[in-house]
Design a protein around this nucleic acid. Sequence first.
RNA 1: CGGGGUGUAGCGCAGUCCGGUUAGCGCACCUGGUUUGGGACCAGGGGGUCGGGAGUUCGAAUCUCUCCACCCCGACCA
Length: 491
Amino acid sequence: MAKGLTKRSKDYSQWYNELVIKADLAENSAVRGCMVIKPYGYAIWEKMQQQLDKMFKETGHVNAYFPLFIPKSFFSKEADHVEGFAKECAVVTHYRLMNDPDGNGVVVDPSAKLEEELIVRPTSETIIWNTYKNWIQSYRDLPIKCNQWANVVRWEMRTRLFLRTAEFLWQEGHTAHATKEEALEETETMIKVYAEFAEKYLAVPVIQGLKTENERFAGALETYTIEALMQDGKALQSGTSHFLGQNFAKAFDVKFASKEGTEDYVWATSWGVSTRLMGALIMAHSDDFGLVLPPKLAPIQVAIVPIYKSEEDLAKITEKVDVIVAELKKRGISVKFDDSDNRKPGWKFAQYELQGVPVRLAVGPRDIENNTVEVARRDTLTKEVVSIDGIEDYVTDLLDQIQDNIFQKALDFRAEKTTVVESYDEFKKVLEEKGGFIMAHWDGTSETEQKIKDETKATIRCIPLDGDKTPGNCIVTGNPSAQRVIFAKAY
RNA sequence: CGGGGUGUAGCGCAGUCCGGUUAGCGCACCUGGUUUGGGACCAGGGGGUCGGGAGUUCGAAUCUCUCCACCCCGACCA
């Protein structure tokens, strides 16, 4: 167990909070609700960005950048959209400071009031659609498939590092299409990109599905989501892709001339994932000893710790290790040889475990004598002494195994925590005693969904795209249900 | 915004009830030495507007008033 890390079984929430701090991923800042992402945490985010960016480009998208500030009036144009965000917007009202005439430091200069307030973007649909208006005249200008990497601000009342912060980092894709079909296809393509990324890189299994009307994005006609299950049995919405119909095109008057010479509004999508994925990554895999990172996203994939009594020992070890390091690097594996002499090996072992380094090699005099290294894997916490010959192949293979293993572990966990229920009583019992995903029939109405939420705090996470489509009867009203939907308590 | 809590060294805390030596402890940090196969040890050292302001008092971390910040529970949250 990591020193001072609360056990998951004792207080999962506290375990998470402590882990983020102790693993040096992020910390609270001087600004309420806003976090400082520390270098080690940011390195993981960068790896996510790199991979996602690659996948976006492979699916035909390009990057651009739009302003941080949005004129207030833009928010008046789409009624549902403003309704969804109005309560959590930061507003810029002035553009100048001055020395306090009473000598109490600096104050806002009252004469520098903006004629129109600026909203710090909570999301960029409005500013982007205002811009797209100028870019689009003809069907030949379509599709437009832009993504931006940015920060956004949502003034949340209660925040938690990575899971819900007032400012967070994300990417938001905004596309414009000539037809409904093409926009729908884009929406679905992107949720699949997210699902693939989550499963292959984060090693977090996700369920793809549609949001109900209650849970839909403000201004969207349809919201696709990927839902992941955390170790405490709660769901985490990990990425969304929205079909916006012609809502924003109509709000910002974006029309195009079709091939046939008719004029029509443009069809839109938007999709995003945020630093919340860091939360998913942390909560899905980590244990009471600290982080467990999937090798594909670990900033350090292999840490090498020398064990020595004398300088001569260290020299011999370094000689051997340098060869291993060079070979691993040649294969694109990030490796850190930690020969710092201010920490003992035991401390280093614990630290790399806390920080989730997938593979640790220890090399001491005994190994030099026997031509071996000690290999420890983070996911299983097992150790093995192997020959130094072919160690590069061994490690390369091991990293793949670890990636597969932690995904499989998460998948098994989800299977175990997914329950099919037939009645509302059973629903409540499972929710109370077991948690996790609950698959139940629902009559499709917001009223029933709301009733369940009010009574149990569970929400419909999604109407899954794949799997069992057998109709049945709603567990609350008994009315017909087209298919089971997934309920859970959510973050 | 309602209920509860906390503010003392970089971090974590004691001291506050009942005012009175030079404000203390653990970790971290610096120096030297011994150590190094699972979070080392010894010796020495540095670091404080006790959240801010006002008041009571010979004397305030401690009592009073006031302001501020943060945390937890709730409400809120695509």
